[in-house]
Simulated assay, not measured.
Amino acid sequence: MSMIGRYLRLSAGELERALREPEWAQEFVEELDGAADGARAGGGWARLHETGKAWQALDFLLRRREFPVDLVHGEGELPGADDWGYGPPSLIMPERVRLAAGALAGLDPGRLTEGVTAADLAGARVYPQGLWAEEDALHLVTAEYRALADFLRAVATRRHGVLVWIE
């Protein structure tokens, strides 16, 4: 089974509820997963987003650029939450989502990978190591970066926050 990065968009009220009732948030994700078509609809309506197996490469590349928000691991564990795969989910609050969306808008995907090769990712032991043998592997990462930037821009526009986890 592969490890994938996942995101859930939450309104202010939903964030408050998740903080009070972390089990509700997990049930909400399970409901949305059951209705995947609507949950992952394109554009600004998407509730769920995934970066697939590119999550650790995105983390590696964003850290290189000293990105101001931890988009891959979140910025604070959801208190009282159970393990959702590889640990409990973390929060990115609405004001931090807005900061991230603004910073993403200023970071072109080509600049994100500038000076980095797939061999660099393999050498840094970035998951999944087998992927970095493929010549076009960085294209997968930039495609996931673009999709994440679009998702977070829509989240920021709504002044929502996100839960982040690795599954």
Results as ranks from 00 to 15, higher is better:
S11G: 14
A12N: 04
A12H: 00
E14C: 10
L15V: 04
E16D: 11
R17N: 06
A18H: 12
A18I: 11
R20Y: 02
P22Q: 14
W24S: 09
A25C: 08
A25P: 01
Q26G: 08
E27A: 15
F28Q: 11
L32N: 13
L32Y: 10
D33T: 05
D33G: 01
G34C: 07
A35I: 00
A35D: 14
A35S: 11
A36F: 11
D37K: 05
D37T: 06
D37C: 12
G38Y: 03
G38L: 12
G38T: 02
A39Y: 03
A39L: 12
A39G: 10
R40H: 08
R40C: 01
A41F: 09
G43L: 10
G44W: 00
G44Q: 02
W45H: 05
W45Q: 07
A46D: 00
R47Q: 13
L48V: 09
H49R: 15
T51P: 07
G52V: 07
G52N: 09
K53T: 12
K53S: 11
K53N: 10
A54V: 05
A54T: 03
W55E: 12
W55N: 06
W55L: 14
W55C: 14
Q56E: 15
Q56M: 11
Q56Y: 01
L58F: 07
L58T: 01
D59P: 00
F60H: 14
F60D: 05
F60M: 00
F60I: 02
L61G: 12
L62Y: 03
R64I: 01
R65S: 06
R65I: 10
E66Y: 08
F67C: 05
F67A: 00
D70H: 03
D70Q: 04
L71V: 04
L71R: 04
L71E: 02
